[in-house]
Simulated scan of single mutants.
Amino acid sequence: MTLTLISPAFADGDRLPEKYARGDRNLSPPLRWHGAPDGTRSFALLVEDPDAPGGTFRHWAIYNLDPERTELHESIETGPERGDLRVGVNDFGNHYYDGPAPPPGDPPHHYHFRLLALDVPSLSIPAQAGADEIADEARKHVIEEAELVATYGG
């Protein structure tokens, strides 16, 4: 079975609904996955915008997710489950999800939601680690990756 990432809020390639954008409610979207490969000991989730003017911009990085977990609820960071999430510092400098905020006049940007199945139970990184550091460390342990892309802006 292949690792698959979906959202009940948008389909792959669709425009991200406004409430998940930084200029609106800035909620993290609901995400679900299945098909974890054998040997998965944890997950990491990255949200990246490779179309940003200065290069890839990271909006969210969660790591050390339990391998039995199969979803993240909408706005999980403000809900009752917040305590078990390990969230890195995004490129806005915040320790939580920050949605799309492309510069006015830019064509639509592509937001890549990447779920990484890892072969380690936890990443050994400092609590204040940035999304780049989390991505770099997680990539050393990837068994399989699933991706869901949304557009926004333009």
Score class of each variant (00 low, 15 high):
residue 49 D to E: 15
residue 101 A to E: 10
residue 120 V to C: 11
residue 13 G to V: 08
residue 99 G to A: 06
residue 137 E to Q: 12
residue 110 H to C: 11
residue 124 S to F: 13
residue 60 W to R: 03
residue 106 D to S: 12
residue 1 M to G: 14
residue 117 A to T: 01
residue 18 E to S: 09
residue 98 D to S: 09
residue 105 G to H: 12
residue 113 F to R: 02
residue 26 N to P: 15
residue 142 V to I: 09
residue 77 E to P: 01
residue 30 P to W: 11
residue 127 A to S: 14
residue 85 L to K: 00
residue 140 K to W: 02
residue 75 S to H: 04
residue 98 D to P: 00
residue 140 K to S: 02
residue 26 N to K: 15
residue 117 A to F: 04
residue 1 M to I: 02
residue 93 G to L: 05
residue 16 L to E: 14
residue 5 L to E: 08
residue 67 P to N: 03
residue 131 A to L: 10
residue 147 E to Y: 01
residue 109 H to A: 14
residue 57 F to C: 03
residue 26 N to H: 14
residue 35 G to T: 06
residue 31 L to P: 11
residue 34 H to E: 15
residue 62 I to V: 07
residue 47 V to T: 13
residue 57 F to I: 05
residue 146 A to Y: 04
residue 29 P to S: 10
residue 44 A to W: 06
residue 121 P to H: 06
residue 24 D to Q: 10
residue 61 A to T: 01
residue 84 D to I: 01
residue 54 G to F: 08
residue 127 A to T: 09
residue 40 T to F: 03
residue 32 R to C: 14
residue 137 E to R: 14
residue 109 H to C: 12
residue 31 L to G: 11
residue 72 L to A: 05
residue 44 A to D: 08
residue 43 F to H: 06
residue 110 H to V: 08
residue 52 A to S: 09
residue 137 E to T: 13
residue 83 G to S: 01
residue 115 L to Q: 07
residue 87 V to F: 00
residue 18 E to C: 00
residue 72 L to M: 06
residue 31 L to H: 11
residue 127 A to E: 15
residue 143 I to Q: 04
residue 22 R to F: 09
residue 104 P to Y: 00
residue 25 R to P: 02
residue 82 R to Q: 13
residue 153 G to P: 02
residue 64 N to R: 05
residue 105 G to S: 13
residue 64 N to K: 03
residue 116 L to W: 09
residue 100 P to H: 02
residue 30 P to I: 12
residue 142 V to H: 07
residue 16 L to M: 15
residue 134 I to V: 14
residue 131 A to S: 14
residue 81 E to A: 07
residue 30 P to V: 10
residue 9 A to P: 01
residue 98 D to C: 11
residue 80 P to N: 02
residue 134 I to L: 12
residue 22 R to I: 03
residue 27 L to P: 09
residue 29 P to L: 12
residue 81 E to C: 04
residue 94 N to D: 14
residue 69 R to P: 03
residue 4 T to I: 09
residue 103 P to I: 07
residue 17 P to I: 07
residue 5 L to A: 09
